[in-house]
Nucleic acid binder design. Structure first.
Length: 438
RNA sequence: GUGAAGGUAGCUCAGCUGGCAGAGCUCCGGGUUGUGGUCCCGGCGGUCGCGGGUUCGAAUCCCGUCCUUCACCCCA
C-alpha cells in the first residue's frame, strides 16, 4: 500500500487510547494542582539558538537529534526536543522574576527528537513535566521529586525505583572533572573508543558506559560525592533527608550523570522494571545556571520530565475510562427521522448525552447501535400504538419500557440519570476534565 | 548512525519444499416485513508494503527500498 502513513516514529492515539491519555493527564493535573504548580503552554518550536545554548552544544540532542528547519524568513527554528529550556525562556521573557519565587509550572506537550524508534521511544513523544524556578532551597528539589512519585503512585505505575546523585556546582565540579580526567588518562588502555573521546569532551559521561572494562575502571574512579564543596554536600544531604521523610527510598547512584549539560547539584531518575531497555519513566534535576545561560539574570531552578508513553507501559492496568452513558434515539420510520434529530437535540440541551442513527440503518440496526453505544436508554419514536406526542423509553440494561410524553422526556431522563450516578469515583472528574479541555 | 527479526482483509493471523489468496473477529444486511447486546445465514472487504530479478508460473526464491518491532548509542 502506498497510501500515506504516519511518519516514522510517530503514532495516532485512537479514541480508546486517547481517552486513557486524557485520564492520565487529568490525574497528573490534579497532583500538580495539589502542589501549587500551574499549567503553561509554550510553542511547539523555538529559535534554534535557545536549545544550542540552553541544552548544550556537546549533547546528543543538539548534535544529532533536533528537527531544525528554516522558515520562509530564513529563521532557524527547531521543534522542541525538551521542555526545560523553553520554560526558562518564557520565565525570562515575561519577567517572572517579579513574581513570588519559586515560580512553579507544569506542562504537557509533545517533544521531537530524530532518533531510531524502539520500545518506549518515539520521534514525537509526549511528556508531562514540572519546573520550579527561582529558589535554591533544597526543599524545592525534594518537592519536585516527591511530586513525581505521587503522580506515579496515583496512576499505579509499577516497579519504580528512584536513583539520585549530586553533580556539584561551578565551585566544586570543575576541580572534580579535572581529577576524573587525570584518572581516566591513567587508564586509557582499558577504555573503549567512545570513552577515550569523552575524556576531553565530557569525562562525566564515561559513567554511562556499559562496556565491562570501562565499568571496572569507573568503579574505582574518584566519585563526585567525595569531592562536593561543603555547600553542595549540605544541599544534597538536605534534599535526601526531605525525600526520605516523605517515605521514599532513594538509591544513591554515582553513575547518574544526566545527558543534558545544564544540570547542577541534584539529579534524579525514576526507573521501572516493566519497560524494557529504555527503563527511565521520568528524570530531571537542578539547573542553577540555565536561566543565566540563555540570557536572564542568574536564577536557580529545578524540574523534571516524564514520558507519557512510558507511563502507560509501566502502569499496572489501563486507567478506568468512564463508560459512556446517555440516550440513543431510534426512529422506526423514515418519516420520524427529523423528529428523532430534534428530540436528541432537546436532550443534549438538557444535559443528557444523546445520539441517533446517522447512516440510514434499519430499526433493528439502530437498536444495535444503541446497545453498542453504551447508552442507558433508547427512546423509540414512531410506534403505532403510542398516543399522540408520546415516545417509548426503553431501559437498555433492564429491558423495561414505559411510554412518556415527549415534552417531559428531557427532564425525566435527566432526573433518572442524576439519581443513578455511576459508583466509580474517578469517572466524574475525568469527564469534567475532558469537557474543560475541549 | 549500527545490528537482528518481521510486513498477507479494518484487526489477529494461517498459507512459505513455487501452481486459482484463506480463517476468526469487526462492519453491513437477513432470520416471514416493529425492538439491541446471545445464536444462525449471507454479504462487503486484499496490486500479499513498494520496485526490480529468477521462472512457463512468485504471497512463496533472490536483490534493493520503505515501514514496523527489538537491541546498541542516548534518552522520556
Amino acid at each position: 500500500m502506498s497510501s500515506p502513513r504516519a511518519p516514522k516514529g510517530t503514532y495516532d492515539l485512537l479514541p480508546d487510547d486517547a481517552a486513557e491519555r486524557d485520564a492520565i493527564v487529568a490525574t497528573a493535573a490534579r497532583v500538580f494542582s495539589a502542589y501549587g504548580y500551574r499549567h503553561v503552554v509554550t510553542p511547539e518550536f523555538e529559535e534554534t539558538g535557545l536549545f544550542e545554548r540552553g541544552v548544550g552544544e556537546a549533547t546528543d540532542i543538539v548534535r544529532k537529534e533536533m528537527y531544525t528547519f528554516l522558515d520562509k524568513g530564513d529563521r532557524s527554528l527547531t521543534l522542541r526536543p525538551e521542555g526545560t529550556a523553553p520554560i526558562c525562556r518564557a520565565y525570562v521573557e515575561h519577567g517572572m522574576h517579579k513574581l513570588p519565587q519559586p515560580v512553579k509550572l507544569w506542562y504537557y506537550c509533545p517533544m521531537f527528537r530524530y532518533e531510531k524508534p524502539q520500545a518506549g521511544r518515539y520521534r514525537e513523544h509526549y511528556q508531562i513535566g514540572a519546573e520550579a524556578i527561582g529558589s535554591a532551597d533544597p526543599a524545592v528539589d525534594a518537592e519536585v521529586v516527591v511530586m513525581l512519585a505521587a503522580i506515579f503512585s496515583e496512576l499505579g505505575v509499577e516497579g519504580v525505583t528512584l536513583n539520585m546523585n549530586s553533580m556539584g556546582d561551578a565551585q566544586c565540579r570543575p576541580a572534580y572533572v579535572e581529577k576524573l580526567r587525570e584518572y581516566l588518562r591513567g587508564h586509557e588502555a582499558e577504555l573503549c573508543g567512545d570513552c577515550l573521546e569523552r575524556i576531553d569532551i565530557n569525562p562525566l559521561r564515561t559513567f554511562d558506559c556499559k562496556v565491562e572494562t570501562c565499568r571496572a575502571v569507573l568503579d574505582e574512579a574518584p566519585r563526585i560525592s567525595d569531592h562536593l564543596c561543603p555547600e553542595c554536600s549540605e544541599h544534597f544531604d538536605a534534599v535526601l533527608a526531605l525525600v526520605r521523610a516523605a517515605g521514599l527510598e532513594p538509591n544513591l547512584d554515582f553513575r547518574l550523570v544526566r545527558g543534558l549539560d545544564y544540570y547542577t547539584r541534584t539529579t534524579f531518575e525514576f526507573n521501572s522494571d516493566r519497560l524494557g531497555a529504555q527503563s527511565g519513566v521520568g528524570g530531571g534535576g537542578r539547573y542553577d545556571g540555565l536561566v543565566e545561560q540563555i540570557g536572564g539574570q542568574a536564577t536557580p531552578g529545578v524540574g523534571w520530565g516524564s514520558g507519557l508513553e512510558r507511563i502507560s507501559l509501566a502502569m499496572r492496568e489501563p486507567l478506568a475510562v468512564p463508560a459512556s452513558t446517555g440516550v440513543y434515539v431510534v426512529a422506526f420510520n423514515d418519516d420520524d427521522r427529523p423528529t428523532a434529530f430534534s428530540v436528541a437535540e432537546r436532550l443534549r440541551r438538557s444535559g443528557v448525552p444523546a445520539q441517533l442513527d446517522l447512516a440510514g440503518r434499519s430499526p433493528k440496526g439502530q437498536l444495535k447501535q444503541a446497545g453498542r453505544s453504551g447508552a442507558r436508554y433508547a427512546v423509540l419514536l414512531g410506534l403505532e400504538e403510542l398516543a399522540d406526542g408520546d415516545v417509548r423509553l426503553k431501559d437498555l440494561a433492564g429491558g423495561g419500557e414505559e411510554d412518556v410524553a415527549a415534552a417531559d422526556l428531557p427532564a425525566l431522563v435527566a432526573a433518572r440519570m442524576a439519581g443513578a450516578v455511576a459508583p466509580s469515583s474517578g469517572a466524574p472528574q475525568a469527564h469534567r476534565s475532558l469537557e474543560s479541555e475541549a
